[in-house]
Nucleic acid binder design. Sequence first.
DNA 1: AATTCGGGGTG
DNA 2: CACCCAGAATT
Length: 348
Amino acid sequence: MTESVGTNELLKDNFALSVVTWQEKFGRHHLPWQHSGAYATWISEIMLQQTQVETVINYFKKFMTQFPNIAALANANIDEVLAIWSGLGYYARARNIHKSAQMIVNDFDGKLPSNIEDLMKLPGIGPSTAGAIMALGHKHYGVILDGNVKRILSRCFGRHLDGQSHHAQKQLWQLSYWVTPEKNCHIYTQGIMDLGSSVCHKLHPQCNQCPIQSICYAHKYNITPHLPYPKVKKNKPSFTKHLVIPYHQGKLGLMKRPNTGIWGGLWVPFILDELPKEISTFRTYHSIKHIFTHQTWIIKPLLANDHLDQIEHWFYPEDALQLGIPKPVRDVIEIIHHDQINTLQEVE
DNA sequence: AATTCGGGGTG
DNA sequence: CACCCAGAATT
C-alpha cells in the first residue's frame, strides 16, 4: 500500500514537472492579459469562459482601455460595459463583472480578493475562475478545471467519463487538485491550458509532441481521440422571430431588455413570435439564421411605421451601433445604416 | 441533475 | 451540420 502511494506520488510529480518544463519552452507567454496584474487576469478569465482565445483578444484590449482599473469599472454605467461586451455573448458575464467591481469597492477595500472564499462571493466567479485568478493573477496556489484540463486528465489518467455527469466532475476536480503542484503553480496552470489547446486536441492530438506521452493512459491503449466520452446530444429547437424595428425620421426605436434571459440588458427592437395583422411595413430585409447554444432563431427583420407611441428611445443607426446590442441586431442595423446612406427615403 | 445562458471556429 | 471553447447561475 505504501509502495503504491509512493508510486502515485512519483507519477503526480512527474506529471506536474513535465507540464512546467514544457510550458517554459513551448507555452504562450505573450497573451495580452499576461504580466498585467490580477485585474487583467480576472477580466480575461471571465471573457474566456466558453470563449476562445482569438475571439477574446480584441474585446479584452478595448475593455482594458475603457476600464483600466477596478474603480473605473465600478464607476461606469452598465450600458457602457454592455456596449464593450456587445457581440461577445453570454451577457450575464458583463453584468456580473460590473456588479463585482462595485462589490469590490464597497466590501473589499477596492482590491480584488486573494483568497478562494472571497473570490467566489463575486458573481460570475465560480471554482475554476477563482482558481485561475489565484494561480495566474496572484501567483498563489489555485486549481482550475476547464475544458482543457478535463480532456488532459481524463486521457492521461484513463477516466472513461462523461464529462458532464456530476460524478465525473467530482472525480476530475479531485484529480486536478491532486496533480496541481504548490511549486510553480502559475506556470503549471498556464502550461496545462496551453498543452490542451496546442497539443492535446480533441480530434487530432499531437501525441508525438506531448511531454506526458510516456505516462498517458489513453496513448498507451491508443484511444486518445475517444476520451473523454462525448456529451449526450440534445436536439435544438428552431423558432421564427419577427424583428419589428420602429422607424421614424431616420431613427430606429429600441428598448432595453430586462436583466434576465437571452440578451439580458441589451438594446433591441420588438422581437415578436407572430407578425401583427395591422402593421405598416416600410421595408423588409432578408432573413438571418442565428444559432444559440440551445435554440435556433430565424430572424425576419422589417422597418415599421407604427407602434411608434410605445417607444421612448430613438437612435440614428450609427448611434445605435455604439450601444450594447446583440450580434444579429447589429448585422441588421448595419444593413439599414448602409441602406440609409444610399437610397432609403421615408415616404410620408 | 439538467437547463440556460452567445457567438465563433472547425471538421 | 455538429461539436467545442480558460464555466457559472439558475431551476
